[in-house]
Amino acid sequence: MLDRTPPEGLPARPGVGYKARHYTSILADPAPVGWLEMHAENYMGDGGRPLAQLRHLAERFPVSVHGVGLSIGGEGRLDPEHLARLKHLCGWLHPASFSEHLAWSTHDSAFLNDLLPLPYTQATLARVADHVDEVQAVLGRRMLLENPSSYLSFAESTMSETDFLRALAQRTGCGLLLDVNNVFVSATNLGLDPRAYIADFPLEQVGEIHLGGHDEDADDAGRPLLIDSHGRAVADPVWALLDETLALSGPRPVLIEWDTDVPDWPVLAAEAARAAAALERVAA
């Protein structure tokens, strides 16, 4: 029997990834959006409009801080300066949730600004668990870790992604952020069954769900290769996968991510409304 209450502080309603161009529209007419997610690294300046907007929005909405630069899967140690910046941000903002990615992006002091893949081995598990422990100790809170979108796999992997994430959550006590679009993208790209992935996912640890749009490409053999672009509406099969996920997990906070070719507010709000309808279908 699953615990049907989400383990983190975000409401089980739709949220959107915040874009500055929507500032006025969100404040004027947020419905059906119940919370906002901010990329941590965009709010690490000393002042100016970004921080003023964030302060104002945080008075009106629960806020999720979503890091994209910590490189938690990196082979090197976590950047102590970046950890300190995250601690400072979470310290004054008191977000309802903090999340990061199962990925690496920094190596040898070069930040590559992408979420790069990891082999799923015991060695990776031990390293990532140490890093998650460190983050949770520094921030003084439980974090959520997000499943990646994959374009390839590693010959050296010895366990599935779901086993890896389950073990990580057990070892560190961290929660998980389930990106349903990433599941669909990875499963399509690697020839796996997305429904089996969801069925095997430790849903009781899921504090937040992500949805986003993907682009369609093809690999050398002409097989479909989906790209996690966040540049369009959520695809229909991903909405169907969300329904199946929510039927198993119960209501969860559901975020719409739209990061490139960002549309006008009504288009994004309509995506959030679709998520609201999905949540209503599983409401007790």
Binding site: L152, S153, G191, D220, R223
Partner: peptide
């Protein structure tokens, strides 16, 4: 080396997705 396409072959141009993203 050691990167696969999920269908038993080498990753090939799938690696280019990451190259392109960066």
């Amino acid at each position: 080396d050691g990167l696969l396409d999920g269908h038993g072959g080498p990753a090939g141009r799938r690696f280019a997705v990451y190259r392109n993203n960066v």
